[in-house]
Amino acid sequence: MTTLQVVAPTLEVAVSVALLSFVVVVAVLTAVVRDVLTAVVVFAAYSLGLAILWVLFHAPDVGLTEAAVGAGVTTALFLLAISQTVRPAGGRTLVDPRTVKPSSVVVALGVTVGLLLTVPALPPVGAADTPAFGPVSDFYLADAADRGVDNAVTAVLVVYRGFDTFGEIAVVFAAAVAVLAALGRETLA
């Protein structure tokens, strides 16, 4: 028992750091491959890495949704869009570095460096006294347990913040209408 407690956290550390590094590498790979189909497949691997990461961060609901929606539905949408269009003809595997615009490098680097500068001011990952842990979350956890709802995430999603979810459904409906309108398929016939 004690050995397990000693071993388990270090293994978790190793897997988390490896997965975080994997996610960064795959994101960069998505950026540099030229072929769109390759980029979509690499992006699916990226989503899968994130899904495992969410489980390691004790967010199983987010992990399931990411695996089903992020790695599944999003990839299917991309493949559907690609099947309707063309892929760039053969040649280079990677994006030609000469076509990179200096202005976009400046924008992306500026945002990244700006965010990195704020990182030391953030509370460390895993600390229990961060501002994110307020009385609201404690109330959700305690009240959901009192009412016999074991999954606090579901309780917050459909009860305490049901209007958020209602808005989300409205967004999905609006998106479905927008897709049909953009593709010129408003009629069912």
């Binding site: 750091v17 960064v24 490098v105 992306a108 945002v111 965010l115 990952v125 895993g126």
Partner: peptide, 28 residues
């Protein structure tokens, strides 16, 4: 923090890099 120990800010750094990479692909 037993999960990240010294590198407790590693995940935050990854967040900054991912946002940067995504923004770069989006604009470039």
């Amino acid at each position: 923090d037993p999960l990240f120990g010294v590198g407790a800010w590693f995940a935050h750094a990854v967040f900054a890099v991912l946002v940067g990479v995504g923004l770069f692909v989006l604009v470039d």
